[in-house]
Simulated scan of single mutants.
Amino acid sequence: MDTTLRPTNAGATGGTLGTRANASSRLVPTRSTESVDDTSANAAASSAASAAPLRTNGSAARIASNLQDQVAGAQQALDYLERVANQLEALKGELTAKLAGTRNGSRLQLEVHARQLAQTLAGRKKNGGGSVDSNLNYSTRPATQRFRIRGLDIESVRKSAPQTISFSVGSAGGPQMGVNIEPDQSNQQIARALDRALAPMGVHASLDENGELVFTTPEANWSSVKDSIAVSGRGRVTTDEVPANLAPQQWNVSAETGNADALRQSLREVVQALERVHRSQAAASAALQAASAQVADAAPPPPDMTIAVEDFNKVAASTDYESLIALTSALVGVSRDRVLALLGLR
């Protein structure tokens, strides 16, 4: 038996998914076009009435949906970061023991833990809630991809001043945005000027911790940005991803080639990564608390909530076939994660 979306007509007795002005939609299975007797028609109409839909305020629903997404993303990020933190702690212990020579067989355990961490980091985009970047930093904004434009560094830009640089992003050239570079501008001023020019295209520019020019774009946009940036006078340019600070797949920890210097460097990377993870955990927890406070301070529409509860109770209290179909159809797509996210708002 299928369900269809049809406007209801006055006096209709066949079950439909209908709508009417200033009223909520009804979820009722469609009837066959074959004729039915009056008893069946009345039963269907009665079931349709009992299967009244949930009604809600549109604005409140949008706010709740946004909060739900924020909470779900922060919860997923916290779960992922906790898993990474546990693996980093295990690696820290194995590396320390290996360097001190205090544990037999620690080399094998070290290799196992390094592979596990590499696999976890490889699944970050899928499991990190979309808000943990490659360096394990958390933000309430979508995670970004850091990259460089080959041949466009801060020194070469300064030496070529005064000049005007135009950028475009897009497979068809896209809109062009220009920026004027003056000889008396500082490195920071040049970076800000480039950032203003690129921002409308979804790309940002800044100076990294070493004072070098680095560009960022949301990870979701990276595939469409990396091969489509053009610079005036150079045409299409080559972009290079900035590698993550933590790369256990490149560590030298095997029995044949491992050495103390490499292990110490790996230990430093692990300790630094742990510090970032702890900061990210604190930031994600703060985001959850802020969302909870926003829910507590918000003024939900009591009439809508009361009506929604009453409507659901009416449908759930009925055990006839039409009501069960209405319930199961309405709950299609409601995942466990969404339910947990909503419960977390309480």
Score class of each variant (00 low, 15 high):
97 A>Y: 07
243 P>S: 03
184 D>V: 07
255 A>Q: 09
342 L>K: 12
43 A>W: 06
80 Y>W: 10
229 I>K: 04
195 D>Y: 03
152 L>C: 04
322 E>M: 12
220 A>Q: 12
296 A>P: 05
121 L>D: 11
184 D>S: 13
216 T>H: 12
63 I>Q: 09
3 T>H: 13
285 S>M: 08
176 Q>D: 14
307 I>M: 15
73 G>P: 02
81 L>I: 03
55 R>Y: 13
123 G>C: 01
98 K>G: 14
67 L>A: 06
146 R>G: 10
86 N>G: 13
306 T>H: 10
332 V>M: 11
199 A>F: 12
315 V>Y: 05
274 L>A: 15
105 G>M: 09
217 T>R: 06
153 D>N: 11
149 I>S: 03
267 L>W: 09
181 I>M: 10
303 P>I: 00
273 A>M: 05
174 G>Q: 04
194 L>W: 01
298 A>Q: 05
259 N>L: 06
270 V>M: 02
121 L>G: 07
273 A>K: 13
155 E>V: 14
155 E>Q: 12
267 L>R: 03
226 K>E: 06
343 L>E: 05
96 T>P: 01
338 R>A: 04
226 K>S: 10
235 G>M: 03
343 L>M: 09
285 S>F: 07
208 D>T: 00
74 A>I: 00
110 L>M: 06
334 V>G: 07
99 L>P: 02
48 A>E: 05
23 A>H: 12
221 N>G: 09
295 V>P: 03
303 P>Y: 00
143 A>W: 06
134 S>G: 07
40 S>V: 12
131 S>V: 13
253 V>D: 01
